[in-house]
Amino acid sequence: MPTIRVQSDPFSLGDEAEDFAKGRTDTGAVVTFTGIVRDTGGMSRMEIEHYPGMTEKAISGIVDQAMERWSLDDALVIHRHGSLAPGERIMMVATASRHRIAAFEAAEFLMDYLKSRAPFWKKEYGPDGAEWVAAKDEDEDALSRW
């Protein structure tokens, strides 16, 4: 059963990766990806807003697609909301599969879809005030490869 967590609390990358990987005997590959808040020029913090209810549903739909398409053994998505400082981890994805290529591809698929199909919005606070992060055309284009 895949795990989906939407939370404001920080998470430990090490603990999550260890928990996800342990006890598997027929999984050949675990891939993890971690997103980190990047300072884009004097940014002091980022606020992430989301749509409670739809967020979990949307992520669940994306994860179900990945599980089926790559016959994954398991998947994990953690995505934070609220106030985050540069260097903090925003989110992580983990995939478990018999084979490495499926685990990598599924992780990329999850990331591409989480970027533009999960209802999160980022606002950056910097020296010149606050600004909503605009979605990029290339993020939308990235979906077409799947």
């Binding site: 997103g35 749509y51 739809m54 995505h79 925003i90 989110m91 990331m111 989480l114 970027k115 533009s116 199909r117 999960a118 209802p119 999160f120 919005w121 980022k122 909503w132 992060v133 605009a134 979605a135 939308e140």
Partner: peptide, 10 residues
């Protein structure tokens, strides 16, 4: 019904 700008997750 919910209205919002394009999403920026990940």
């Amino acid at each position: 019904v919910a209205f919002f700008p394009p999403m920026t997750g990940g």
